[in-house]
Design a binder for these strands. Structure first.
Lengths: 332, 332
DNA sequence: GTCAACCTGGTAATCGTTTACGCGTCAAGC
DNA sequence: GCTTGACGCGTAAACGATTACCAGGTTGAC
């Protein structure tokens, strides 16, 4: 029923040449007669030939694919990065494949094995966990890796990330300038560098500003929306904070749910400029990460690393900026 | 500097056996002595051997990869489908790669060529355009395709989609029951089946309910947020509609922006249960597509088609349901 | 006219696997 | 003891492409 796909041999036969010549035509070699070249191209069309990437890559000893690996298919921050990187890579005529790790270390490792096995030529990775993700499989195989958004302790690779410590400091200054004096922060787990750096930057800045911060100014959630809501509800019940900084996007949404419609609720400063933040009432001020710049830098860095693998890895930190909306209007 | 990766031959040498035996051990053949098997496994660990998927697939005449192709990396509806399908496929130990087409037919075709060339064993596709997407490259290559969310005119393939006509009818009935009598709908381009079916179902149902619908009850946007806003602004200016049904998620957000805070604005019924719809004030009623069921059905259908390619293709339609919130509270 | 240099295009080896085939060994049945 | 069968393993031929190498023909210089 299904006829086998045409191979380079079929093309060669119908064009009356050898497979070598077909290969040369396909790959744009200049050393082939125009007449023959026409015949070959005609034969390609006639047979509907598509080169077999498996054979080609096997012979060439490598693919020209780059992989983008992120923890979550549904988090807007990651999807923006993925979309942007895909566009850039495509413009450089690399083909791109995406994979998601479900925030699960085992899935991530399985994914690495796949990529090694498939001989991808480079990986842009948002690691699941800065302390426990093991890049060994990739680096042992000599595959260039660029870490995006989250670094990995002790990894000897390129990193493109947000300056999270600075983001936290900016958050603190923003709230301080607007007259708030009783801060709280909702962080994630201690092992996740991004949220942790934001939280410590935030609390450190308040201390520098001469504001006492109690031990319960630091609250922890599990990054999901629900935990943002429950933690914020606890803060409301305690009634001590007059402003709350939330260190990731999903918990931010949960925190907003908890204070929506609540009279005299603390000011809310969220993370990431996701769609909902500007649609809700009051609209929510956010610490906006430079998604586009991050993606660009990461893509550029990867292609550079693929070109010369032996250079010293570098780290690029990008600044966030505050987008002020109604949820942090001056106290008074 | 970079040592070449170990091959099956290296493993064979260090284990003191032939490559055939190594291959048999790796693939779990039972016909190999336990003693040798141990030695081989030890050698695999010692050398850090990872089978080369390129060689393997070349020899086997096919991969065991399935590809998920969607137009947009950032639309929550697609990302949910992608996430869900990936989970299911992984559970069936298929490996998954994702690609995005940017709502661009040329990118989509390029993508198809890649997939053919890479010999993926099945494709789950959300096509860019039901009238113009050309599945030829895939089907000619004998690759099973399941269309998700959007069908393609005249394509002889499996389809899993929402019953959009019914969704439109439900929308109309919902608004009618709540006392609204002057409907408008914001559709997309005529060539996009999903939004078009919703719109015609919606308008048809109103006529069946005995309500006159004028020609300007049907408005068109370009699917993006901004167009939702501008079209809604026009509707506000005209001042005729008392309720508006928006047929995709991004335009819904724009439409909401236009009516936010506007006194006496028409009721809003949006599409897709995206995060913002329940966070905003007033919360927005939506026609919720059965994302999870869609994904499941599509994944199941693809594996079935991969198992026996010659069966007649089938179409699965799934019903939407209305989630009632504040934006469509009864008129009065 | 001869020879060297060059250009084109074919032959065949190769990339890393899998697997059909066959060879040796051993046990069982007569 | 000899045949038969089963079993375990190695040899070598594929899969589809690329490319080093070589053969044959053309050209130009002397």
């Amino acid at each position: 029923m299904v006829s086998p796909r045409p191979t380079i041999m079929d093309v060669a036969r119908t064009a009356g040449v050898s497979s070598a010549t077909v290969s040369r035509v396909i790959n744009g070699a200049t050393t082939v007669d125009k007449e023959l070249s026409k015949r070959v191209q005609a034969a390609v069309r006639a047979t509907g030939y598509v080169p077999n990437a498996l054979g080609r890559s096997l012979r060439r000893g490598g693919t020209s694919q780059i992989a983008v690996v992120a923890p979550d298919a549904e988090n807007p921050y990651f999807t923006q990065i993925i979309g942007e990187v895909e566009r850039i890579a495509r413009d450089q005529s690399h083909s791109v494949t995406v994979a998601h790790t479900e925030d699960d270390l085992a899935v991530e490792q399985e994914c690495f094995a796949q990529l090694v096995s498939r001989h991808v030529s480079g990986v842009l990775l948002v690691p699941v966990d800065g302390m426990r993700t093991d890049l060994g499989p990739l680096t042992d195989a000599g595959i260039p890796v660029v870490l995006v958004d989250r670094g990995i302790d002790g990894a000897h690779t390129d990193v493109v990330a947000t300056d999270n410590h600075d983001a936290g400091r900016q958050a603190a200054r923003h709230l301080h300038e607007r007259g708030f004096r009783a801060p709280a922060v909702i962080a994630g787990s201690q092992t996740l560098r991004t949220t942790e750096d934001r939280a410590t930057g935030f609390l450190g800045a308040w201390r520098e500003l001469g504001v006492e911060v109690g031990a319960d100014a630091l609250q922890r959630g599990d990054l999901h929306l629900e935990s943002g809501r429950t933690v914020m509800e606890q803060l409301l019940a305690a009634g001590e904070a007059d402003c709350v900084y939330v260190t990731n996007n999903r918990m931010s949404a949960g925190a907003f749910e908890a204070i929506r419609g609540v009279e005299g609720a603390p000011a809310l400063l969220a993370t990431d400029d996701d769609l909902w933040t500007r649609l809700v009432t009051p609209s929510v001020s956010v610490v906006h990460q430079a998604v586009r710049a991050t993606s660009r830098a990461a893509a550029r860095m990867l292609t550079q690393r693929m070109a010369n693998p032996d250079e010293e890895p570098s780290t690029t930190l990008l600044r966030s900026r505050i987008i002020e909306r109604d949820s942090t209007q001056p106290k008074g």
